[in-house]
Design a protein around this nucleic acid. Sequence first.
DNA 1: TGAAATGTTGGGGCG
DNA 2: ACGCCCCAACATTTC
Length: 474
Amino acid sequence: MRTLVWFRGKDLRVADHAPLADAAAAGETIPLFVLDPYFFAPERAREIPHRMQYLVESLAELARSIEKLGSRLVVVGGKSTEVVPALARELGVDRVVGYRWTEPVGKERDRRVTKALAEIPFDLYDGETLATPGKLLTGSGTPFAVFTPFANAFAKDVVVGAPRRAPRSLPPVPKLPRSVVAREVAVPVPEDLGITPNPRIVRGGEAAARARLRAFLRGPGARYDVGRDLMGEAGTSRVSQDLKFGTISARAVFGHAKEALAEHPKARRAYLNELVWREFAYDVLEHRPDVLSEPFRPAWQGFPWREDEAGWRAWVSGTTGYPVVDASARQLLTEGFVHNRARMITASFLAKHLLVDFRRGEEHFMRFLTDGDWAANDLGWQWSTGCGVDAQPWFRVFNPVLQGAKFDARGAYVRRWLPELANLGDRWIHQPWEAPAAELARAGIVLGETYPRPIVDHAFARQRFLATAKGHLG
DNA sequence: TGAAATGTTGGGGCG
DNA sequence: ACGCCCCAACATTTC
């Protein structure tokens, strides 16, 4: 049995990689990665610099790991829909295996590959998520549209298997035909893709992912139920990009958390729940692939979003005058990550305060988030906007000042990303425009010069949104 | 995984 | 001492 194991960027690991382990157990195994210009053409790669940096770093480590196990990762360039079938023939493999991508773009690719492979079996494993998207249904056979019932069904019906260990060794790659060798290329470094490496992006690769999870479970995980919301603290696991790229498997995260947090039931429930939210996002996308371009709730179609270029530029650049919103904008551009609480606040601000189409913000996040995941990002944006599945009601408008006071009471988060406000006292850190002149002077702040005044008044923006939404939604 | 407006209550100041 | 009013503090309703 000769198997081509196609790694596809959401499974960049050797531990708990069922297709790889099964192939190795069955005979000759050829690990493959394809640098598809759809992602790797420099003009495309430069659009998503943070994810690309993480990806190539993870890919390099994967190649090293596979080499240590006695095999070799074969890396080729070209469109995967053409290259994979061609390689499969040139290599004379009996089958091609990999993990299933359930996102629309992956489904379409795999449909074409299956067709082009023709008589060569293409076996796709479930495992991107804990539950197979689309499988869980309500009692009446319809897709879940509310999280809690989905989570209940998940708890009742989904058996999360134990993660498998990495193979102890892999069979060596057989001698490759000349035609295949000619296609081989090296794993790119960021510079090859026109990307300047950014030291603030989290380290890619399987080892770093495991280390992050372990550090979390040994430390802040115990009080995750409260710590996860505190924007200034490192209270979260920070493995979102690792789940996205599969440098750690979802069931490894689930299993380790379940075990390690056993003595902290509230924290454990909260953390596992977040993993189930990810499941829910994939499930929704499976049933409703149109959510990537349209609101989940039909009533929101044609919502009268505003064209507000000045507002948009302020939101993107972190100059809205609302410290939490501005801090999150700068965190995104600087380190490719935003604290979840800050994501909710800033998404709400763009859609509700500025009345800018949430899809524009969603796209911006997808560009710069290292963990940018179609399903999870879309669910988050639609939830915050109020047009999504189990979304918060449209009339709930976050007040960025109150949210800041509640979840960043000492202003640690804001000060980290807005050094120009560093010396402002806690009392005013989330509303510098209200600070007395003497306090501003003491802190070296000149409103409108060193830090902007709010681009829009909160009370006004809130009323404007409520009136607009009421008018459209009835 | 809200916030603001409105309603209610009860203690204390004050004539 | 009594009644009236004010207004926190808390509860409920509305968006």
